[in-house]
């Protein structure tokens, strides 16, 4: 056993990830998908929307590693291009709720009283509706498409973040440093966003990762229902939906996009776990 050999690796790799396998694996999976999305035009062997009548429903082969769909479109290329849309969905579907929820939660927690009561009742009202139903009705009003999906997510998804942050702020604002800042006469905005928020945000950041999984699945579900991405754009949820009629005859049409959804969701969830450990956030 060479005890001395270990410290040599410490600085780079180990500093970031330590013994945190989940964080490393999650980041690796995510990085892989981000690279695929960035370099889609270079990696994808075919045009994702080009139809080829001669190669309809072709089984996986060297020519088409993931096979082709009922229009003869190459599934590998569609999966790669789909990465762009799905990552984009996961990002925008999380970032707006995160921003809105954090601000609302901070304000509610900090001011308390009537402001808090009003905001919390609003959250209760939104939570009283089933999440998917509310989202579907918003999209139905705005019309199908990705931007409607982001707006719906922003309108509905922020409540969880607001609750998380508010709970933290409630605890933190009674801490000595917060009381000290108030007695020193700092402005409310400064206390809220410079002193309290950075200490309250860790839980939300971890939650972002598990929320990204939900958003991804929601986005896939919305597209599956025909309310998200419109054809012929490649998106994993749409691809699963389009392959459903052939599930007993051409399994590859649904399998590969389905696996991609699972893999990306798995990556996010590992990353969430890893971040949780690293930032010392309890489950």
């Amino acid at each position: 056993m060479s005890v001395l050999a270990r410290p040599a690796f410490t600085p780079g790799w180990s500093k970031a990830f330590g013994t945190n396998g989940a964080l490393a694996a999650g980041s690796a999976i995510l990085a892989l998908f981000v690279l695929a999305a960035l370099f889609a035009p270079l990696i994808a062997p075919y045009d994702p929307i080009a139809q080829d009548a001669a190669a309809r429903l072709a089984a996986p082969s060297l020519l088409h590693p993931f096979g082709t769909d009922n229009f003869g479109r190459d599934i590998l290329s569609r999966v790669i291009w789909g990465t762009r849309i799905d990552l984009q969905m996961a990002f925008f579907g999380v970032v707006f709720p995160f921003l809105i929820g954090t601000v609302v939660g901070t304000v509610a927690g900090f001011f308390g009283g009537v402001v808090d009561a009003l905001l919390m009742r609003l959250i209760d009202i939104i939570l009283a509706f089933p999440f998917l139903v509310l989202m579907l009705s918003i999209i139905a009003i705005l019309g199908p498409g990705l931007s409607s999906f982001y707006i719906a997510m922003a309108l509905v998804g922020w409540v969880s973040y607001a609750r998380l942050v508010r709970a933290q702020i409630l605890v933190l604002k009674t801490q000595d440093y917060a009381v000290a800042a108030t007695s020193l006469g700092f402005g409310r905005l400064r206390i809220m966003f410079r002193h309290l928020l950075p200490n309250a945000i860790a839980g939300s950041v971890v939650f972002v990762m598990s929320d990204a999984v939900l958003v991804l699945l929601n986005g896939a579900a919305i597209s599956y229902l025909g309310l998200g991405v419109q054809p012929p754009v490649a998106e994993w949820g749409v691809m699963v939906a389009e392959g459903q009629p052939f599930v007993t005859t051409a399994w590859w049409v649904t399998l590969f996009p389905g696996l991609s959804i699972v893999a990306l969701a798995f990556g996010f969830s590992l990353l969430g776990d890893g971040l949780g450990q690293r930032l010392g956030v309890a489950e």
Partner: peptide, 10 residues
Amino acid sequence: VEQTAVLLQQ
């Protein structure tokens, strides 16, 4: 109907 649409679009 969906398949017809994708085909006609192309």
